[in-house]
Structure formats: structure tokens, C-alpha cells
Computed example of a mutant assay.
Amino acid sequence: MTVKEVLRAHITDHRAHNTDQGNASAEKQGEDRHAPSAAPAATVAAGRASQELGIRRAEFELAVHLGLIAVVGAPGGGRPRVHEEEIARLREQPDFPDALVERVRTVGTAQGAALLDIAPARFTRLARAGCVSPVTFYLNRYRAVVWLYLADELAAFAAREPELLAGRTPPGMRAMLESGADWRARNWRSQRIDRLLDRTTDPWVRTAVQASALDPVQLAEVVDDPYERAYLVRVRPEPVFGRPGSMAAREAMAELMLADDPDEILWRRVNLTLELDAAREDRPAPRPGDDGGARRTAPTRTGARPGPVRQVPAVESTTPPAGTGAPPPAAVGRTTRKGLLARLRWHGRGTG
């Protein structure tokens, strides 16, 4: 089976799953519309929700990012809000709020190393090799990026790969580290993109998510229509909460979001090309003079629905495949009759 066939099979399975979820959601909405006295559910602002849940605002925002707390768009725009029913659901869970706080607890390198009972230098090597993935970051007083990791995911890694916590580093990993590899930013990007894709089924929004990992030159090579590029900028989802406030933090976020290694850039171009094909099949991007019908956009899901929450394992979802430098497959669209590699116009920039 060719790489293209493998990708298409993966896409078909993923889209079938999304379609099933979308149909179930549509049926539920239809039932709600036919309810005899359906009143709008009461919502509260994020600050009020975090207070009622008894967690700090940073913990609340990370829980939203991870899909542990569902939020809804405010009427007429504005900051997302939380249904009171969602707050009640969370408060009814066992060990509330300690269990929720533990699921969003983050640690830095020193704390992570202590949690795994290893030296900080070994923890850094494991993170650089892609064994553990950061979930967020902050800038220290020297404006250097400090990565943070979910404590839950580190504990799961220790239980799953105890042999990597002691003894000699495996030869393959040692060679990888000696070559200067560092998967921390790449894994952070991969998880961020996957979580944004999980929130929407709209093909143009999904394309915009994939486009966010490429710089303007790379993007123009894949999406050669300027109207489509402008539309991708308009529909690109922003973080629900937790947008960096300072100029330095925004600049760091903008830099970290871009793929910076040739094989990662190629992989993101493949994903973007396939998602773009699916978006074009669904509807054309609006152009000057188009009516509002061309601008229809499927609603995005901005959080988890009540029920079991799917955790995203750090290693299983983002650890580099053995013998390759490519990131894990993200959800992608369908191909067209044109040759995929020809459409990518990839010349191995930066490969020497």
C-alpha cells in the first residue's frame, strides 16, 4: 500500500467518526427544537465558572484547552461562556474538585524529574527525544521558553516505559539527541493542532488549522489562491482562553506555532493539501461580491460534551515513529486526481 493510500484510509476512518458525531449532534439539536417549552440554558462567564468550580483561572483555561470543560460561544460574539448544567455535571463527579485539579496539574523540568525520580538532565533528554510532550509554556524573565508538562501524562509514561527511566539511553535515541534533535516544540504543535481539529468539522476551519503551522511563503506555495488564503485567516480559530497577553509572549507563540524542520514542514504541507481538497469540494471560499450563502460555516465545538472525556496520551499521539522524523498523522482531507507530491511543489528547502 502506498503512502497516499494509507493517508486516504486514515482520513476516511477519521471523517466517518466525525460524521457520526455530527449526525448525533444534529439529531439532538432537532429534538431540542421540537421540545414544547425549550428555554435557553443559562450560562455564566469564565471567571464565574472557575469560581463555582473552585479552581484557579489558569487551571480552568487549561481544562478548556484539554476538552475537560465544555464552553459555548456567547450570543453576538465575545468570550465563550459555560452552561450551568456543565458546572453541575463537573461538581457531581467523584473527588471534585481535586480530581479535576490533578488532571490539569502541570510541572516544569525540575518538578517533572522529581516526579519520575530521575535527574533533570535525563528528563530534558526524554523530552527532547519526544518521549514526553509539553502541554503549554511560559516565558521566564530572560524571555526564554519554559515548557510545562501534564503530571498525569508523565505518570502514565513512567508506568508505560519504565526502562527509559534508568540505565543507558537506547542507541537510537542517543544518536538522535547527539544530532541536535529537539521534539518539544514539534510535539506541542502537534497536540495543539489535534485538539483544534477535534473541535470542528467545518472543512475550511480544519484547513485553517493546518495552515497555521506554515509560514506565509510555504502557505502561498500550497494555497495559491489569494482569496482562499484570506478566508483561511478569517476562519482560523483562536485559543478559547489563555491567549498570551504580553508582546513577547505573542511573538513567542507565533514563532513556536510554525513548523521549522524540513520533514515536519513537508508533513504539514501534505495535511494542508488534503484538507484543502476537502474544503474545496464542500464549498468555494467567498470572493468579493459573493452573497452570504457562500460564507456558511459549520459551528465549531468549543469543548467536551457531558460524558467520559478522552485523554490524549503524550507519547502515543506524538512520539516520533521508529526510524523516521515525521510527526504522527493528523486528521486530513481527501486527495484529488492531481498528483499529491506535484501539488505540494516541495523542493526539500533547508535539507542541504
Score class of each variant (00 low, 15 high):
33 R>C: 09
15 R>P: 01
176 M>K: 09
264 E>Y: 01
142 Y>M: 06
273 T>C: 15
247 M>A: 15
17 H>Q: 15
146 V>D: 06
29 Q>N: 07
15 R>S: 08
239 P>N: 11
190 S>G: 04
229 R>E: 00
289 G>S: 09
211 A>M: 04
324 T>E: 01
244 P>I: 03
17 H>V: 15
202 D>E: 08
129 A>Y: 09
277 D>C: 11
55 I>N: 00
71 V>N: 00
132 V>K: 00
272 L>P: 00
242 G>N: 11
90 L>W: 02
174 R>W: 15
210 Q>K: 09
55 I>V: 15
233 V>M: 12
339 G>K: 04
119 A>H: 14
238 E>T: 10
198 D>T: 06
296 R>I: 10
224 D>A: 15
27 E>Q: 13
280 R>F: 05
3 V>R: 15
149 Y>I: 11
124 T>V: 12
54 G>V: 06
36 P>T: 07
216 P>Y: 11
34 H>A: 13
238 E>V: 07
250 R>E: 00
114 A>M: 12
14 H>E: 03
34 H>C: 08
252 A>V: 11
282 D>M: 10
21 Q>C: 04
90 L>Q: 03
8 R>L: 14
138 Y>R: 15
109 T>M: 05
345 R>L: 07
252 A>Q: 13
279 A>C: 09
223 V>P: 00
267 W>E: 07
212 S>H: 06
184 R>L: 11
209 V>E: 01
122 R>N: 09
284 P>R: 03
96 F>Q: 10
210 Q>N: 13
302 T>F: 08
162 P>Y: 02
284 P>D: 10
116 L>D: 03
342 A>W: 10
171 P>F: 08
117 D>Y: 05
86 E>H: 03
254 A>D: 11
27 E>H: 08
284 P>F: 01
98 D>G: 14
139 L>Q: 11
336 T>Q: 10
254 A>W: 06
311 Q>W: 04
85 E>F: 07
282 D>G: 04
103 R>S: 15
251 E>F: 06
301 R>D: 07
8 R>K: 10
110 A>T: 14
109 T>H: 06
346 W>A: 01
340 L>I: 13
91 R>G: 07
254 A>S: 14
299 P>K: 13
109 T>R: 06
76 G>V: 01
68 L>P: 01
